[in-house]
């Protein structure tokens, strides 16, 4: 019962340079949504490309259980821009503007799973910028890290690093 959502890409320029563009690749998200993309897009995703290569291109439907249908369109959009050589600062700023911190994290993990180096690199900088002024508690939650200090150890370390605790943003409850 897979629903087909074709990517919103403008395939015109790609089909001109690639005559065999009819052989589209189907990417299936974890929640069973199918996204049809040009093979050139798949090339940007190393994980997908190596899957295609391993099967000598016979299999063109690729399940991506770790990627949700919410994230996949973003990934595809970024890859399209990347092929077109149109990754600009303006595009990147616009790209993440509407994403909250949790969504950026998901995309970051998706980029890691798909092995898209450029996107991974870009999103790690976005996350760094967004957590730079966050509290230690926020960062623990965000990274899913257990506090393994004893209260005494932590208090001591905080005292030593007191100079780093100025100008920290208050934790936002409705961050997501």
């Amino acid at each position: 019962m897979a629903e087909e959502v074709s990517s919103q890409m403008n395939s015109l320029s790609i089909s001109e340079t690639n005559p065999s563009s009819s052989a589209t690749i189907s990417l299936v998200s974890g929640d069973d949504i199918v996204f049809k993309v040009e093979p050139t897009i798949a090339k940007e995703m190393e994980t997908v490309q190596s899957f295609i290569d391993e099967t000598d291109g016979k299999i063109t439907t690729i399940p991506l259980p770790n990627i949700s249908s919410h994230d996949l369109p973003y990934v595809i959009e970024y890859c399209e821009k990347s092929i077109a050589g149109k990754i600009t600062k303006e595009f990147e700023a616009e790209f993440v503007k509407k994403l909250n911190n949790e969504e950026v994290k998901e995309l970051f993990l998706a980029a890691n799973y798909l092995n898209i180096k450029k996107l991974l690199d870009f999103l790690s900088q976005v996350i760094a910028d967004r957590i730079a002024n966050k509290s230690v508690e926020y960062v623990r939650r965000y990274f899913g890290i257990e506090n393994d200090f004893t209260p005494e150890e932590e208090a001591k370390l905080r005292e030593e690093l007191a100079w780093t605790f100025t100008g920290v943003d208050p934790d936002d409850e409705d961050e997501n």
């Binding site: 730079a132 990274f143 370390l157 780093t164």
Partner: peptide, 15 residues
């Protein structure tokens, strides 16, 4: 990719 000050503060996150 963090500024130094943030990086030092996050030393308090875990061992």
């Amino acid at each position: 990719k963090l500024p130094l000050k943030s990086l030092k503060r996050f030393e308090c996150v875990s061992k």
